[in-house]
Design a protein around this nucleic acid. Sequence first.
DNA 1: TCCCATGTTCGGTATAGCCGAACAGCGTTT
DNA 2: AAACGCTGTTCGGCTATACCGAACATGGGA
Lengths: 278, 278
Amino acid sequence: MPERSGGQAGKSERYRVQSLGRALDLLEDIGRRGREGARLSDLARGQSLSKAATYAILQTLLAHGFVADEGASINRRYRLGFSLARLGDLVIANIALVDAALPILRELTAELGLTSRVAILDDGYAVVVGRVDAPGAVRFDAALGRRELPHCSAVGKALLSRLPPDEARAILSRDELPVRTPHTNTDTASLMAELALTARRGYAVDDEEDTEGVACIGCCVFDRTGSVAGAISATGLKQRGWAKRREALARTIAHHAARISRSLGGSGPEPGGSRRAS
Amino acid sequence: MPERSGGQAGKSERYRVQSLGRALDLLEDIGRRGREGARLSDLARGQSLSKAATYAILQTLLAHGFVADEGASINRRYRLGFSLARLGDLVIANIALVDAALPILRELTAELGLTSRVAILDDGYAVVVGRVDAPGAVRFDAALGRRELPHCSAVGKALLSRLPPDEARAILSRDELPVRTPHTNTDTASLMAELALTARRGYAVDDEEDTEGVACIGCCVFDRTGSVAGAISATGLKQRGWAKRREALARTIAHHAARISRSLGGSGPEPGGSRRAS
DNA sequence: TCCCATGTTCGGTATAGCCGAACAGCGTTT
DNA sequence: AAACGCTGTTCGGCTATACCGAACATGGGA
């Protein structure tokens, strides 16, 4: 087998379980289909696997509740199962920041009418660990566990701005930085300068850099040791008057971020720019 | 989590992928360790697998983000990864009932000071798909995706009460009904009578039947076709005066359940006692 | 009704998953 | 400090097993 389809290049191709990798790719694929679910044949085609192998994998996932089946025997559709919800909830429940942030994010969303989220830094990405949707607004793609790109999201830039500069630079020049919109900035030097500005003024801005027409402002949250515990952000459609409102929005978000920090026992950043132990 | 460790007896032992099953068991085991994480050797021992095999499984899960590792090379600890949070969130996001229920459950919790949840019927179990924790209260085990036993939980009995009697009886006599507390009722005939009472008065009661000292009241939610979309419940410590407050609590919960039903476009139950297509 | 595409079942074979053992680091203990 | 004990990592090798291809079964659509 020369080439995998979903192959993320890891260090050692050896010391892996091939069939497990295939099954996990399959789960991602089923998740991608969403509400409608996926059929066995489609999944087999998508993974370049025989129907029989796909069948065996699905039966195993089924027995463990990682997928659920729906419909009669002939056109059965598979969707993600509740075991994933159970384990995924455990992941989130183990993060103290989430408990502290969600009530305050709810106030923030109510106050501004904007969708808000809280994220932490993991492996150089900003991972969304909590969100509060604005009522009746456009549904932004802020799924839990989603990896926000660090160079074109408000939470990402906020988190990077408190990292030692060499670490931030390493993250920003690690891979090819994807271009999401015409406003996406992929120049490392320019991004480093923006991170310095972000640290100075205390908030980060994503101005249509990830999604056209969508703007974001993010601020860091600090724990009792002054280390960065995570970052919060508010997201909304970029409308006229945005430039004028930006400062006021940033002040409000920073205020609530500070409240979350206090709720964690912290008060503000450590001047040294320390960071969480990874 | 009462039982299960290794093999749940499915229909056809054949047509399964053994190594995948082992990996999924491993995930459950890691989740059971919680915040501290698990070490490779412990996991290998727990699964009766060689270290080498466990290592390969973990490396694969790691590459896909289903587990995360923490710490240096020697005493590395594994915990559940964010891919599970991402996929688990997709499971919940695909359920329309959750969006409708959560804002109203928040009001309910604020009003009563009780933890509230919303559940749906899946394979004869009540699966928790949303929850709102009471502020500062005892943290009840209401993790998302958790399967509540149908015979000793308020949501379970509420959901069963709207099923055709023969289906409810089939569920209640399917397996050995576990005894959770001295108050747990495992007598099918008596439970069937209670379901009839539940349907008549419009709310279900769990009086220390699942956890000692904890009481629960649940009500069904109906969609636009009059079918049962799910059930909500409020949970709290059973204190003196409980018997007196019960009726008032039930009225409040039923009121909010009706609001959720209206938000789904429904107004009330279909007299026939129909149910959702599974 | 036929037909097509789907899900299910079945041997056979080469693969790859598992084991045992040996190696290599770090923490702890005497 | 040095030896120990435990950890995680790497390595051949055997054989279980995961995959394939094909045949069967089953429902939906025209």
